[in-house]
Design a binder for these strands. Structure first.
Lengths: 217, 217
DNA sequence: GTCTATATAGCGATAGAC
DNA sequence: GTCTATCGCTATATAGAC
């Protein structure tokens, strides 16, 4: 209470070290959880990849599970990010869906490890995502569904169940992250290159628009 | 060497016990690996679910990994099973793809745990499936691709890269097994009922045929 | 062939020096 | 705030009785 700035000056430099190390730990954890799953990853591995002593990891994250939840939180922020902004009534369904699909494919290409952790969580029955799935995501789907229903009512789209349409779009776009090794194998490639993502964007867009977007004119 | 049937009679009943127990172990292991992953499943859990002492599991399967590989082998047999028979030149693409998609959705509904174990394996980079992916599956895709290319050459289909078409079909059909909890959550259901699978079959078929099958007449 | 009892290793987590 | 050394537990795997 004596001097205001004291605590600030004492805390801020330490806070920067903290931020940097927490960031390193989260990044290492994301890589390893994506590659090996929760139980398949050891805290020693995470510490080694982050180039920190193991006990230091426990200083910032009291348990392995808390660390995992922190990783998951960042992923949900990504997931709830930009793509949805395209689905608004003012755009036609063709433009909206085209851009939405492009955004989702970009996400799969730029954050494949995030996608894999999310997929792992769903495969296991999503024990840490019940609130997210039943409240946050469900509300999002209902909002997007209203927009789609509106286009249907205007005769711009053929009738379609938004839940299934969105599930299929997510499945197709995320498969290029989650199952990349299978797609690479059947393509005879070692890894997915830009060409694959360009073609993926086209084919997914084509399937969705051909099936549900009413021809103009 | 004294009597021929002796060994037969001595061995066959034992062999039947063996088959029954091995079957119980494999079934329990499949359930648990699907729910918890390889590292998340303990041999004690498997033994308990199979209602056998733990050491008995080790009698039939020398290591946990060998047991996992046995489970995986059964899944690959399922995966390489019936669906592909629909993709033959003599049928038109509409009939072929419609039945192929129906078969894949049926597989997802009837064997969701198998699908989840396979998905887990791909997520981890498929360390146990390199031969399957690069040889067996790749050959299958090349055979199916030839049929599709043939339909394109005949003007029955619009040009399409078979690798992407198949990847998208697999993604959409398997998502109803792998990510069932997400689809249930956004639908406001506790579990996926028959209605969901019927709609799924329709929407996936519609997307594929609308985009790539040339209109008859 | 079957099962109990146990060896051994590796992991999550912590105590305590600095 | 940071790190070394270590604890306690759990899980795979086995030895050996029946």
């Amino acid at each position: 209470m004596v001097e205001g700035p004291v605590t600030d000056e004492a805390v801020r430099p330490a806070g920067q070290v903290r931020r940097a190390r927490v960031g390193r730990i989260l990044k290492a954890a994301e890589r390893l959880f994506a590659a090996n799953g929760f139980e398949g990853t050891t805290t020693a591995d995470i510490a080694a990849l982050a180039k920190l002593p193991k006990a230091n990891v426990y200083y910032y994250f009291p348990t392995k599970e808390k660390l995992y939840l922190a990783v998951l939180d960042r992923i949900l922020d990504l997931w709830l990010g930009e793509a949805d902004i395209w689905i608004v009534p003012s755009r036609g369904p063709r433009e909206a869906l085209t851009n939405y699909i492009r955004a989702k494919i970009d996400l799969a290409r730029e954050h494949p490890e995030a996608s894999r952790i999310y997929a792992s969580e769903l495969l296991r029955g999503a024990p840490h995502l019940t609130g997210y799935l039943h409240i946050t995501l469900r509300n999002r789907v209902m909002v997007l569904g209203k927009v789609i229903d509106g286009w249907v009512a205007q005769g711009l789209m053929h009738p379609v169940d938004p839940v299934h349409l969105l599930s299929c779009i997510w499945a197709m776009t995320q498969t290029y992250a989650d199952f990349a090794v299978q797609i690479a194998a059947i393509s005879g490639k070692m890894t997915l290159d830009d060409d694959v993502f360009v073609r993926a964007t086209h084919i997914v867009t084509r399937m969705v628009t051909a099936a549900f977007v009413v021809e103009a004119g």
